[in-house]
């Protein structure tokens, strides 16, 4: 008879064998060791020392800009000379005046890097696709000739007689007189070129007028055309490169206080 309170044990069960099987099934578990995390070995000094070094390092990074007080100081990270636009209506003073040459150079640099740099290179030395602008006779000589090349492009030989495949395409599209003035000023005063003069917006307007008056305004200029018609400076009142002008309107500023 079986005791109803006891589990239904089969008498033929080999307890040792089933125990072994259970052990084998759970072998990985039964051979495990206990986790003991409560180590109390004395901590080596170098561990604290290296943590201290890290702390010092982090502190230096935080204090890199002087003192903690300057963490909230914009002047520490903003480039010198950077001026935020005053957007309030009554206080619309605009940026402070600057020297004419610097203002035109800055505009020209932007224009140069978007339109010219691809072929003439960041250093103006040209390459396989375009001639060098450094010391170039046409870039530094008569400004009418230089302006015509930029506005109309160029077919055939350059000032040195070298010919480039396809010549130079027109750069007139999307260019305003002020852009032309800037880029001409920039090329004439960069990469070692130093004519020291400013091509003003007024002169650039004259160049645009000349370009429109050509018999075929869409044709590229040629050496022959340039050397026959445009050996003169662009018309307009020359500007002293150190004149203080307004960087937005480009008008000379009377007040020399800035």
């Amino acid at each position: 008879m079986q005791d109803p309170n006891k589990p239904d044990l089969d008498e033929t069960l080999n307890v040792t064998e089933s125990h072994d099987r259970m052990l084998r099934e759970a072998a990985a578990v039964s051979r495990e060791k206990h986790v003991d995390e409560g180590g109390r070995e004395p901590v080596s000094l170098w561990i604290f020392a290296s943590c201290g070094l890290i702390l010092i390092f982090a502190g230096l990074a935080l204090g890199n800009i002087g003192s903690l007080g300057s963490l909230f100081d914009y002047d520490q990270t903003v480039k010198p000379g950077y001026v935020r636009l005053d957007l309030s209506e009554d206080g619309a003073k605009g940026p402070p005046p600057a020297e004419a040459l610097a203002v035109y150079m800055k505009k020209g640099q932007k224009m140069y890097s978007s339109k010219c740099q691809g072929c003439h290179g960041g250093d103006g030395k040209g390459g396989a696709a375009a001639p060098s602008l450094v010391g170039s006779e046409w870039a530094l000589g008569d400004t009418q000739r230089f302006a015509m090349i930029i506005l109309n492009g160029l077919a055939g030989p350059t000032s040195t007689g070298q010919t480039f495949a396809g010549g130079m395409p027109t750069q007139k599209v999307g260019m305003a007189p002020v852009d032309l003035a800037g880029v001409m000023t920039y090329v004439r005063n960069s990469f070692g070129n130093e004519t020291g003069d400013v091509i003003t917006e007024e002169m650039a307007e004259h160049a645009f007028k000349l370009a429109e008056e050509r018999s075929d305004p869409n044709a590229q200029s040629t050496k022959e055309e340039l050397e026959s018609k445009y050996l003169a400076p662009l018309e307009g009142e020359p500007m002293d490169p150190s004149t203080k002008i307004d960087p937005v309107t480009l008008e000379p500023v009377e007040d020399a206080a800035g």
């Binding site: 995390e37 180590g39 109390r40 070995e41 004395p42 901590v43």
Partner: peptide, 18 residues
């Protein structure tokens, strides 16, 4: 933190460090 002391069967180096 579980595997190393478990498999080694050794206490962790220093509890305070953890």
């Amino acid at each position: 933190y579980y595997l190393v002391p478990k498999v080694m069967g050794r206490p962790v180096y220093n509890y305070a460090l953890s």
